[in-house]
Design a protein around this nucleic acid. Structure first.
Length: 917
RNA sequence: GGGCGGUUAGCUCAGUUGGUUAGAGCGCCUCGCUUACACCGAGGAGGUCGCAGGUUCGAGUCCUGCACCGCCCACCA
């Protein structure tokens, strides 16, 4: 049956067909393995994208890398579970639905909480799957049968369980502290959600008169409006300038309130005047100082960033208007001593961009230290390893500096805090809504209105997705997960929290010992960790290395790139550019190049099919059985056979090693160079003669080798380019593959015995000779079609034998009419190529362009002389001979001989052409 | 203020423990529709590896300093 393929690879239709096939056939679904399963396990949790999300380059990179690793493991026989899901994304989702309501002229507040949440669920039903649908186009081989959503009932129950346990353990508390307040979002946010940016601001110096004297004290502030809430002025106890004022009071300007002068380390003598105003309700440091001195906390800014009643005449003004007014009034009344330009680092809400105000507020917190201690230990003892390694220290530094985590959010969408208030004042923290108050028996219970930080629930996913708090077989098998692949950005938001929660709640957990052994984790002691390894991938930037942003307008949409060049090419781009630890400048011209690569593969396949059909070779005879790990039924009979087999095994070895170390770029580049530069450019060209042989045994044998090597190459390539490899692989079997999919076939494993250095060396000489002839032809401007006779002088009999054996190949690839061997050097002939192994001369009526040839020879001579000098310097250095390893010295010596030959030939050529100096 | 990363061909980047001649893709130049592929083939040009020292037999690779670019963290009024 003939294989009909279009001349150009068209990814669109093919990709969606296979993506659907993989899903429909449930190819990547992993049921709970039975106890007698003897395979190693690989588990990976997909970092859940926000339900509101749209696929961007970051996702695509992340998922491409994960999919490569996952497919690679699956093909190597691991029970491979990749768990997908989405995150409810509290603030983001609420804001999105809010916006939608507003456009309909409705509002969340009128609607009420319950109706609003219903509405969000409706929204989720309609649009929440978008990002996962986009994922499907990428070919991500996740287990769709286990898809989760962070607000699913079972996961929500686990969240409540965690909250209650932490509360009972004294690790969750509620209290009034300074938090980062975003007025736009109407909620407190954690330190991590605040980004700092420098702005040109002013530093105002304000004079506070000392009560009962003519003296005064000057303080400095960047936020003058906050003075309305001052409750003290602090000076340093050691600062002698102010010793005489200890115990005195100042009169707060504008407010005419008397406040004390206190001594506190908050005031640093070197800064400004050494005196600092203390506003406990609106500054974190002042808050601490206020607690030390038992100062009143006077709130003057409300949750809408407006001045409140405590601000007296300024009440009702926005904080920035109030600032203006305060400054005016201070100036008018002579209290403003001076104003300086000053760079202020403002905190901005990560989500809304609003300037965050530190504000006193009652919130729920996680007491983080006990959790952090375990999370630090897990990494310090290498129970969890982080790649690239420099992130390990970054992680540890951050963990050592960690603050308590504010987990309550004043939102409606999210996991509502499982705490209820009785009218008697009793607080009940419980897994399910209590029927009555345990203290007074009252039934008028009101649930806390706050919800939990989104990261609280996502931090639990490694175990909650496996059935926790139940003790399940899935947990025994799949926990700890093997790997986590993620962006640096969420190392603290998510990775650190998972480690803390995992180490805490899974303490005492033991993975099935046999599986742990088989999977290669026998040496790991701690099974409570959420994953064994973390791989931090790079950031995708635009073609010029700039960070992508909507404002700059340089955002590259991966789906557009995919539409244009295909998923495989886009995946390949990301893989090939992903050197660990460096950012990726995504250049679509690169993707175009890999689209061309896909087309190259496609056409090589067409060539193979053409020959299979013509010669009558079927896949079944070339490549059975399906589970072998090498090249099957490949019978090397010629130099190029031995050579390509050797190369294939070497590349296979490199690819496996590269993937092991997350060196995706190396894996991708090795395959690319092999397939295009060696398999297509040389091997296929070389076997054409045999394929076209009159002798059917010869052509059959050659075709069988071609098919089996091609099939193995497809398996090697499959993790990076799943679609085209599946398409061709299925076609090789003419619709009757031995397995449902190439994704289930074995990944090639190198057979070191097939790595054959001597064939590689011989082949290199042959290639060198062919290239030399082509080169001379180009210089002589020989017509492409014209065949020319050549003379060859071989230095060694082995080289001569090599050329003789491969005479037809040489004639074909270099367009040579006949080869004559001569006994002496040909270097003196104009236009000859001379190397250390052979000289070659093309017989042709046209003369060489002497000037150009001279220039070329001179350049070559210069290079060789430089190398020779370098070579000699080293070889005459006794220290070098004594200390350098033998193979380096040997190599240099061999090279010295070659250089001598080369130099003498070059000189004689130059002389012959009378090039001058 | 602290920390991290980068600086290699016109552009975007590789270069794993220091080891013989520094690579790729794109772009550029010359030639070619040779029955897999013009999304192709053949040939070619192009680099004092940011600067200055140092260690070493040997440095793009290690150390120190400097310059420039970028990122992250941070409660200094």
């Amino acid at each position: 049956m003939p294989h009909e393929l279009p001349k150009t690879y068209e990814p669109g239709a093919i990709e969606s067909r296979w993506a659907n096939f993989w899903i429909q056939e449930k190819l990547f679904h992993v049921p709970t393995p039975p106890a007698d399963d003897k395979r190693p396990v690989f588990t990976l949790l997909l970092p859940p994208p926000n339900v509101t999300g749209r696929l961007h380059m970051g996702h695509m990179l992340n998922q491409t890398q994960m999919d490569i690793i996952v497919r690679w493991h699956r093909m190597r026989g691991f029970i491979t579970l990749w768990l997908p899901g989405t995150d409810h994304a509290g603030i983001a989702t609420q804001m999105m639905v809010d916006r939608q309501l507003r456009s309909e002229g409705k509002s969340r507040l009128e609607m009420g909480r319950e109706k609003f949440i219903e509405r969000v669920w409706e929204w989720k039903q309609l649009y929440g799957g978008a990002i996962l649908d986009q994922m499907k186009r990428l070919g991500a081989s996740v287990d769709w049968g286990r898809e989760y959503f962070t607000m699913d009932e079972n996961l929500s129950r686990a969240v409540r369980e965690v909250f209650v346990r932490l509360y009972e353990q004294g690790l969750i508390y509620r209290g009034k502290y300074i938090v980062n307040w975003c007025a736009d979002c109407g909620t407190a946010i954690s330190d991590l959600e605040v980004k700092h940016e420098d702005f040109a601001g002013k530093l105002y110096e304000i004079r506070y008169p000392v009560v009962g004297s003519n003296d005064s004290i000057t303080v400095a502030t960047t936020r003058p409006e906050s003075m309305l809430g001052d409750s003290a002025v602090a000076v340093n106890a050691a600062d002698e300038r102010y010793t005489h004022l200890h115990g005195k009071k100042v009169l707060l300007p504008l407010m005419n309130r008397e406040i004390p002068i206190i001594t506190d380390e908050l005031a640093q003598p070197e800064f400004g005047t050494g005196a600092v105003k203390v506003t406990p309700a609106h500054d974190a440091n002042d808050f601490e100082a206020g607690r030390r001195h038992d100062l009143p906390q006077i709130e003057v800014i409300d949750e809408h960033n407006k001045m409140n009643a405590n601000a007296g005449p300024y009440a009702g003004l926005d904080r920035f208007e109030a600032r203006k007014k305060v400054v005016e009034d201070l100036t008018a009344q002579g209290f403003l001593v001076g104003t300086k330009d000053y760079t202020v680092a403002l905190g901005l809400c990560d989500r809304s961009g609003t300037i965050v105000e530190p504000r006193l507020s009652t919130q729920w917190f996680v007491k983080i230290q006990p959790l952090a201690d375990k999370a630090i230990a897990a990494v310090e003892t290498n129970e969890i390893t982080i790649v690239p390694e420099n992130y390990r220290q970054i992680y540890l530094n951050w963990m050592h500096d960690i603050h308590d985590w504010c987990i309550s959010r004043q939102l409606w969408w999210g996991h509502r805090i499982p705490a209820w208030w009785c009218s008697c004042g009793e607080l009940i923290v419980a897994r399910e809504a209590p029927a009555k108050c345990p203290k007074c028996g009252g039934t008028q219970l009101k649930q806390d209105t706050d919800v939990l930080d989104t990261w609280f629930s996502s931090g639990l996913l490694p175990f909650t997705t496996l059935g926790w708090p139940e003790k399940t077989r899935d947990q025994q098998v799949f926990y700890p997960t093997t790997l986590l692949v993620t962006a640096y950005e969420i190392l603290f938001f998510w990775v650190a929290r998972m480690i803390m929660f995992g180490c805490h709640f899974m303490e005492g957990h033991e993975q099935d010992k046999k599986i742990k052994q088989l999977s290669g984790w026998a040496e790991k002691k701690d099974d409570s960790v959420p994953f064994r390894q973390v791989y931090i991938h790079s950031l995708v930037r635009d073609a010029h290395g700039e960070k992508m942003s909507k404002v700059k307008g340089n955002v590259i949409n991966p789906l557009e790139v995919i539409d244009r060049y295909g998923t495989d090419a886009t995946r390949f781009t990301l893989a090939a550019m992903a050197a660990p630890g460096t950012d990726i400048a995504f250049n679509p011209s690169r993707t175009e190049g890999y689209r061309n690569f896909a087309n190259k593969i496609w056409n090589a396949a067409r060539f193979m099919f053409m020959n299979m059909d013509r010669i009558g070779v079927a896949a079944e005879s070339s490549i059975t059985p399906p589970n072998a790990k090498g090249v099957l039924n490949f019978e090397p009979s010629t130099l190029e056979d031995r050579w390509i087999l050797s190369r294939f095994n070497r590349i296979t070895k490199d690819v496996n090693e590269a993937l092991e170390a997350f060196r995706f770029h190396e894996a991708a580049n090795r395959i690319y160079d092999f397939f295009w530069g060696e398999f297509c450019d040389w091997y296929i060209e070389l076997i054409k003669a045999r394929l076209n042989s009159e002798d059917s045994n010869t052509s059959k044998a050659a075709c069988t080798n071609l098919v089996s090597l091609f099939e193995a190459s497809l398996r090697l390539l499959h993790p990076v380019m799943p679609f085209i490899t599946e398409e061709i692989w299925q076609a090789v079997y003419d619709g009757k593959p031995p397995l449902k999919s190439i994704a289930l076939a074995a990944f090639p494993k190198a057979d070191e015995k097939q790595i054959d250095l001597s064939s590689e060396t011989s082949m290199a000489v042959l290639q060198d000779l062919i290239v030399s002839v082509r080169n001379i032809r180009a210089e002589l401007k020989v017509e492409t079609k014209a065949k020319v006779p050549i003379d060859v002088f071989a230095h060694e009999p082995t080289v001569r034998a090599l050329v003789e054996e491969n005479r037809t190949a040489l004639e074909r690839l270099a367009n040579v009419e006949s080869i004559k061997f001569v006994d002496g050097s040909l270097a003196k002939l104009p236009g000859a190529r001379a190397t250390a192994r052979f000289d070659v001369h093309v017989i042709y009526e046209r003369k060489i362009d002497v000037a150009a040839e001279c220039e070329r020879l001179k350049k070559e001579l210069e290079k060789a002389e430089k190398e020779k000098a370098n070579n000699q310097r080293q070889l005459s250095n006794e220290n070098f001979l004594a200390k350098a390893p033998a193979h380096v010295v040997d190599g240099l010596r061999r090279r010295a001989g070659e250089l001598d030959i080369l130099l003498s030939k070059l000189n004689s050529q130059l002389e012959q052409l009378q090039c001058g100096k």
